[in-house]
Simulated assay, not measured.
Amino acid sequence: MKKTLLIPLITAISFGSHALTLTSNDIQEGTRMADTFAFQGFGCTGDNVSPQLQWKDAPQGTKSFAITAYDPDAPTGSGWWHWVALDIPASQNSVDRGASGKLDGMREMNNDYGVAGFGGACPPKGHGMHRYQFTVWALPTEKLELPSNPSNALIGYMLNASALDSAKLTATYVSE
């Protein structure tokens, strides 16, 4: 008798819950990004444009969002942060293509190229395919509390420690 009650309960919980989801008109899961989203510099000749992103099903209690773009395959021992955008209002559920540097109310931190805003893909030539993890984070505060001039590793830690939920879209890029 216990088995017959357990299955409907699990089904109700599974179908009744929503998870934050992230999609894009510009980049797709597991697919090579266009040169539009590659860096201009460091030997790369892309357009350095941030991709369009949209998200839905944020958890109750979300007061802001953050967006990060991270390359775990960079030959640094610590990956490479391409974009860290914080304090995106909870009323917002997307960013347009090229939004980096143009959104009110959003705080963009320095990427690992050393400049604020989006820095496109640029794996070293001959290094093979790299993954670019675009993540949207649902946060319980309007502003992520950070010390002045935080490292991206500290920001990543704070996002992981405080996020109500997150959703990831992983695109790829190979320098040709």
Rank of each mutant, 00 (worst) to 15 (best):
E176Q: 14
T36F: 01
F15P: 01
A167E: 09
D87N: 15
I7M: 14
E142P: 10
Q54D: 09
I155R: 10
A171L: 05
Y157Q: 14
D71W: 02
A161C: 06
A69T: 04
T11V: 15
G128H: 04
G16N: 10
C44Q: 03
Y113D: 08
G98L: 04
G79M: 07
L169R: 01
M33T: 04
A85W: 05
A38D: 07
R32Y: 14
P124Q: 08
G120D: 07
F134R: 01
D71F: 03
E142D: 11
L6W: 13
G61H: 08
V95C: 05
E176M: 11
S100N: 06
N111R: 04
E145H: 14
N149E: 14
T31C: 08
K168C: 07
F37R: 00
D96G: 11
L86M: 08
P123R: 02
A116N: 13
T23L: 09
A74R: 04
T36R: 05
N149F: 13
L159V: 09
H127Y: 15
D112Y: 02
K143F: 11
P140E: 01
F134I: 06
S162G: 06
G61C: 04
L103C: 07
E145G: 03
P51H: 00
A99D: 02
T31F: 15
L144W: 07
S151C: 11
N160W: 05
A34H: 07
A121Q: 05
G77M: 07
D104G: 15
F39V: 03
E145Y: 13
P124S: 03
I155A: 09
L154Y: 15
T23P: 06
K168S: 14
L9D: 11
V49F: 03
H130N: 10
G117R: 00
E145P: 00
L86A: 05
Q92C: 07
A167R: 04
A90L: 08
Y132Q: 00
A163K: 10
S64V: 08
V115Q: 14
G30H: 10
D57L: 09
N93V: 05
L146S: 05
W80D: 03
G126W: 02
P59W: 08
N149L: 12
A69C: 14
S91L: 02
L53R: 10
L86R: 03
A138R: 04
S162Y: 04
N152G: 10
A34S: 15
P140Y: 02
